[in-house]
Simulated assay, not measured.
Amino acid sequence: MFTLQPINSFEKFLCNKAFNSGTPICGTFELLPICNMDCKMCYIRMSPNEMHRQGTLLSVNDWLRIGKEAANSGCMFLLLTGGEPLLYPNFLKLYEGLRYLGIIITLNTNGTLIDKQIAETFKHNQPRRVNISLYGASDNTYKELCGNPKGFTQVMNGIHLLLDAGVQVKINFTPTPQNCHDLEKVIEITESLNIPISTPTYMFPPERKPGKISTDNINRLSPQQAAKEQLKVIRMGHPHLSDYINYIKETLDDIKETEEEEVLPPGGLLCAAGVSSFWVNWKGEISPCGMLQKSTRSLKEYAFKEAWEAIKTETKQILTSKKCFNCRFRKICKACGAASFAENHDFSLPATYHCELNEAYEELLKKELKKLEQEKINK
Rank of each mutant, 00 (worst) to 15 (best):
A70I: 04
A71E: 09
A71I: 00
A71K: 15
S73V: 06
S73M: 13
S73N: 10
S73H: 01
G74R: 10
G74M: 12
C75W: 06
C75V: 09
M76L: 15
M76A: 09
M76G: 04
F77N: 08
F77V: 07
L78K: 07
L79E: 09
L80M: 05
L80K: 04
T81C: 10
G82W: 06
G82Q: 04
G82M: 02
G83Y: 06
G83Q: 03
G83P: 04
P85G: 01
P85M: 06
L86S: 02
L86I: 12
L87Q: 05
L87N: 00
Y88H: 02
Y88F: 15
F91R: 00
F91S: 01
F91I: 03
F91V: 04
K93H: 10
K93F: 01
L94G: 08
L94S: 07
Y95I: 03
Y95E: 03
Y95W: 09
Y95K: 08
Y95L: 02
Y95P: 03
G97F: 10
G97P: 08
L98T: 09
L98N: 05
Y100F: 14
G102R: 12
G102H: 07
I103Q: 03
I104A: 10
I104P: 00
I104T: 11
I105P: 00
I105S: 07
T106E: 15
T106V: 10
T106F: 04
L107Q: 08
N108I: 12
N108M: 13
T109C: 14
T109Q: 13
T109L: 08
N110I: 11
N110G: 09
N110M: 11
G111W: 11
G111K: 12
G111N: 12
T112W: 11
L113F: 09
L113K: 14
I114L: 09
I114S: 07
D115Q: 12
D115N: 15
Q117L: 14
I118C: 10
I118E: 06
E120R: 15
E120A: 14
T121R: 05
T121K: 01
F122D: 00
K123Y: 03
K123D: 00
H124W: 11
H124A: 05
N125E: 01
N125I: 13
Q126G: 00
P127R: 07
P127A: 10
R129L: 12
R129Y: 01
